[in-house]
Amino acid sequence: MLYLNSEQGFPGPAPAQPGLPAQPAPPAVTEPTPVGDNLAPQTTTLLRDAWRRLLRNRSAVAGMIVVGLLILVAVFAPLIAPHDPLAQDFDSRILPPSAGHLLGTDDLGRDILSRIIYGSRVSLAAGILSTALAVAAGVLIGAFATYYGGFWDNLAMRMMDIMLAFPQILLAIAIVAILGPGLTNAMLAIGIISIPIYARVVRSSILSLREKEFIEAARALGASDLQIIFKHLLPNCMGPLIVQATLGIATAIIEAASLSFLGLGAQPPTPEWGAMLNGGRHLLRQAPWVTAFPGIAIVVLVMGVNLFGDGLRDALDPRLKQ
């Protein structure tokens, strides 16, 4: 599910990259306007423009609201949850939705709504942290390899190609199986398998910038390689990177839920949406709500993140919207 979102509606044909597998065009890789230290005022204007465009995009605002609300739910879970998410009660097992339990109970008599509310913490954390890890590693690999080019670029990109030649979820499962099941290891695994996306996004941005005049200028002024990478090149990759990372969070949330569904992610009694789904599977027939509601929670959150990410892409790349 890795590239799930990155290729949606990208503007033109993806140039076939030298190397397999075919690479989807990174979102919004247009000519980024150079932003260096000396260009700060222009940056703010750009960002302000982007922000304004974002607010005009109704679906992006909807996405923002959904995600915002879910973040609030996660933060204030103890205040919102009507019941203790861990409290078992064998006398109220598998109850259908009712006034007492708005979304019903599972087969240990736990309140599903409360578990979903607490579960938002796990899913958001898993999505954000694993993506952060992937972005950090991907950016470093992509930036350095591309900047130095030649052999290093080739080596790094072929490594990424090879990683992408394996089904990502199998890699994640294998990593977790070796490290041992658990939420932390699941996040680590998802982070690792997502590295290639970010490495490639950074690479294609930097490739177009490397030979630009302002970089030449910085070099002429005696800036070191590190300075050039961190002060001049990376800030100019931020647009596509932010878009990709946002969409990547959506994917990571689904992957974390998948691993938990397979029993490799969050461990009981932690309320996690994927694990809840798995726990309700054998009740699918007589109590479909046990399985349905955690899934709906995943869909709502992921959809919110996707809408927001799509909006961000449009906002940061004005050319797309006419």
């Binding site: 087969d107 240990l108 009981p268 009694p269 726990g279 054998h282």
Partner: peptide
């Protein structure tokens, strides 16, 4: 029939 669930009950 439900070892994982029984484990959760025992855990609690």
């Amino acid at each position: 029939p439900q070892p994982q669930k029984i484990a959760e009950a025992i855990q609690s």
